[in-house]
Design a protein around this nucleic acid. Structure first.
Lengths: 202, 202
DNA sequence: ATAAGCATTAACCAATTGGTTAAAATATTT
DNA sequence: AAATATTTTAACCAATTGGTTAATGCTTAT
């Protein structure tokens, strides 16, 4: 997930998969050509089909793994019996701050996948029984019994993730530099827990 | 912006533009073919070039107008001197609830445009001097002087908009129907003002 | 060393793409 | 009604696309 530098000694298959991941996230499925993936990997485009049979199959694998990695890291946080709500919130904030500064396209990628071809991702979600049964849902219900835990979850995740989606808008709107907006995004990690706490206090 | 049914008496040019808008939002630039736009409009694809010279030019115009309409409706709300913060929040919630239930792809479209080709949209933003100088920014600063108004703005908009982006995830994760998730999204409009108020109370 | 199997390449293919154009259809002007 | 201008169409074009394949290179076991 983090800045994946392709190791020089990685196999051709790994190179292609990683190149595919990068380009797919950057340009989306339709905007990506197998030749560009091959270029990114420093190979011929015939090899994409040699190792993965088709662009579609490669995309499937990349998406599958990406989503699995994404949610795989979230569930341990929201399902931890030993942390309270505040600690979970901080855990989520740290996680998203880390990966989304590195790879801002990730949210687009996953959520557009989720909208366009939900079946493909369903499997990974079921394995984890979803957010609905997570420990955090119970804790949210305790904090605010008047509002459905999933609604609160949307609020929390929205506050954390949305800025990475709307980055460009805010950057333009405020006329500030790339570096400054990244600084702002990192700053958020500090005061967000308090804001969320205030929101959840009945 | 709302459910735009193409009037039967509209000109060919209007038909193409509206068809282009729909398909571009649904499939993105790369995923859209001029022939599909023509199909959607019930015409030959040569007419797309006849009226708009190229797919690219049509996309430019559609994007331009879409962004202008989008922000054109927001700025009157956030710049109103006669409403307080709570009323502005409610105004934003109503606006987004309305258009995003109608056209869930809009947020994707605009924010991905904003990330991929920010120059193209810059003009529309400057005209409105951005969010930074809006009345709401001043009011947010009064409510919470300890946090930058733009940070608060991201929080508010995140809580409102993010659910429309992550719709699919939550729907899957909770195993509920399309209708139920729409019901949830509409429900949000009712309790969100209170949650945001709680968050902003120092 | 040689044969066998795997990896890689360049050349190729059919389908689709954005875009053009000449001719046909329609509307407008005279 | 005839001439003119505009709109629409079908056929076409070159470029790009995902995918295949036969030949070449490279390992590795024999």
């Amino acid at each position: 997930m983090s800045k994946k530098v392709i190791p020089a000694d990685s196999t051709t298959e790994e190179k292609i998969k990683e190149a595919g991941r990068k380009v797919f996230i950057r340009k989306g499925y339709a905007g990506t050509t197998t030749r560009e993936i091959a270029d990114e990997a420093g190979l011929t485009h015939a090899l994409v089909n040699y190792y993965f049979r088709s662009k579609d199959k490669l995309f499937d694998i990349v998406t599958q793994e990406q989503v699995a990695a994404f949610f795989g890291k979230i569930y341990p946080i929201v399902n931890n019996e030993d942390t309270n709500l505040d600690e979970k919130v901080k855990g989520l904030i740290n996680y998203y701050t880390e990966i989304l500064i590195e790879e801002p396209g990730m949210v687009f990628f996953i959520s557009s996948e989720m909208q366009n071809r939900p079946e493909r991702i369903a499997k990974n979600m079921e394995d984890n029984q979803g957010l609905a049964k997570a420990v955090i849902a119970r804790q949210l219900h305790e904090a605010r019994p008047d509002i459905h835990p999933m609604q609160l979850m949307m609020c929390i995740l929205g506050m954390i993730i949305f800025p990475y989606i709307s980055r460009g808008v805010f950057q333009r709107s405020m006329g500030i530099s790339e570096n400054d907006i990244i600084k702002m995004l990192k700053e958020r990690a500090e005061f967000l827990p308090a804001l969320i706490k205030a929101m959840l206090s009945n």
